[in-house]
Amino acid sequence: MNIFRLIGDLSHLASIFILLHKIQTTRSCRGISFKTQALYVTVFATRYLDLIFGEFVSVYNVIMKLFFLGSSCYILYLMKMKYKPTNDPSIDTFRLEYLLGPCTVLALIFNFSFTPVEILWSFSIFLEAVAILPQLFMLQRTGEAEAITTHYLAALGAYRALYIPNWIYRYYTEGSWDPIAVLAGLVQTGLYLDFFYIYVTKVLQGQKFELPA
């Protein structure tokens, strides 16, 4: 564990609390892509199989994984049951097969060993890299977002961005790197660059998040 990974994880944790806070206080999941949230459940469910089949890492690791699994399922429940009337599927139109198909193929090609657990682990890494796309696509379509939604996205983006110095640190201290996680993580962070730019230049200056026409 190093400081970059710890702050990254805390940022990930914060993003989920921000999202829950947004849904609970506004009693609405307006502006949140159900597809992206469903992809995160898929990501956690396929990666955290290692809770059952993998080696024990640490109590921290187990608790965080259980939290991410539980909270992401709870968010789906809020969107599909409790606050269903506020969820508008007609603007959440990104085609999931464009993500699931390529991620499946990539996972079958690039994995540590050709076993179900390792293929699913790779699949979860690739899928996580692009899981935000339905959400960003929705933002693009509506052209604006509530401030709280942008704080959620910023915290979520910062999480993987902070993993990059963590991998650099690990490369120098452990002498190795993980090409699957690192390359997917760079792509994942790259997808946020446009968003980060508008977040920093507008939202953090107190302006509304609006995409340029």
């Binding site: 994880d9 290692d50 993998g54 080696e55 890492v57 993993y163």
Partner: peptide, 10 residues
């Protein structure tokens, strides 16, 4: 065989 590095991350 050691575990691949990122397997101990979240």
């Amino acid at each position: 065989q050691p575990q691949p590095q990122a397997h101990d991350e979240l």
